[in-house]
Design a binder for these strands. Structure first.
Lengths: 151, 151
DNA sequence: GTAAAACCTCAAGCTAACTTTAGGTCAACA
DNA sequence: TGTTGACCTAAAGTTAGCTTGAGGTTTTAC
């Protein structure tokens, strides 16, 4: 029964999959990437500690924020290895990602303003568009640029 | 000379590549995806109209906004086929993408607020976290949920 | 005890957006 | 005229984040 599983605090992969809403194959995959851990029973089957569920929730939440698995792995790496992470530990992670999210939002807003400018001027060209040309970059060969600009 | 190329208004692929800052292979790729067009000269080499440069700039700008090539293709499809697109035509595209960008920003901001809440409560769990649980979803199997929640 | 359900590994497949490679043709210039 | 450099096609490779499939073992349930 699942009650037994819970009391023993070692969860089978199928149970974790159902609970977390991710597929078994995804759990295998996350493990292969070092995002989650498990140990094996006598029959070589994976067993998980219950806090893997929180870990998966956090992974999914971070992904929703646009963080890559690699970055998530890095940040998860700051969690304590020995003890089960506390609320504070998890909260620290949220803070890291919130900062990244903030940056992303600000970037998008700057972009938005530029697009705004472009709606007015219709300037979208390789040479002048502020959206594309962060650094006023022009191709290596400048000859004939004036003619092109006129197009 | 490149001046000749410009006056003739048929640009070779290498020239377009240099000017737009994308690789020749990318131009081939975009063409295969129907994002840009070219015709061939006698020797089977690609030739482009100068406005391909603006088109590429727009593609790149849209990508910066997080729009997929497929969506970009759709939106570019609203440009007039017969005549060279005008400022107004291009401006209409910016407007479409600006709207999408707006939505994206709002989504991120809502996310940010939720993460904010989570920093306070440290609640990041599969069952309760507002970041992950848009619809208060729990796995299919509910037995033992209370025990798990306590973890 | 046996059959179905769950689990295992390893390899290959998938999508997006390209890049790289290989083998060959065309164009520009001295 | 010859030799670079630019161009051509088609196919395979790349990264992220998984999923699917094949073939075999373990657990669970009756």
């Amino acid at each position: 029964m699942s009650d037994k599983k819970l009391i023993d605090a070692n969860l089978a992969v199928g149970f974790v999959a159902k609970r977390s809403g991710v597929k078994v194959s995804t759990l295998h995959f996350y493990e292969s990437k070092g995002l989650i851990r498990s140990w094996r029973n006598n029959g070589n089957q994976r067993r998980y500690k219950p806090d893997v569920l929180r870990r998966i929730a956090v992974i999914k939440a971070a992904q929703t924020m646009g963080i890559t698995l690699e970055d998530i792995k890095q940040t998860l790496g700051t969690l304590p290895e020995q003890r089960t992470p506390t609320k504070q530990d998890w909260a620290a992670l949220s803070k890291v990602w919130q900062t990244q999210l903030d940056e992303r939002i600000q970037y998008m807003q700057r972009l938005r303003e530029r697009v705004n400018g472009c709606i007015g001027c219709g300037c979208l060209s390789m040479a002048k568009c502020p959206i594309y040309n962060k650094d006023d970059y022009l191709g290596e060969e400048h000859s004939g640029a004036v003619l092109l600009e006129r197009e």
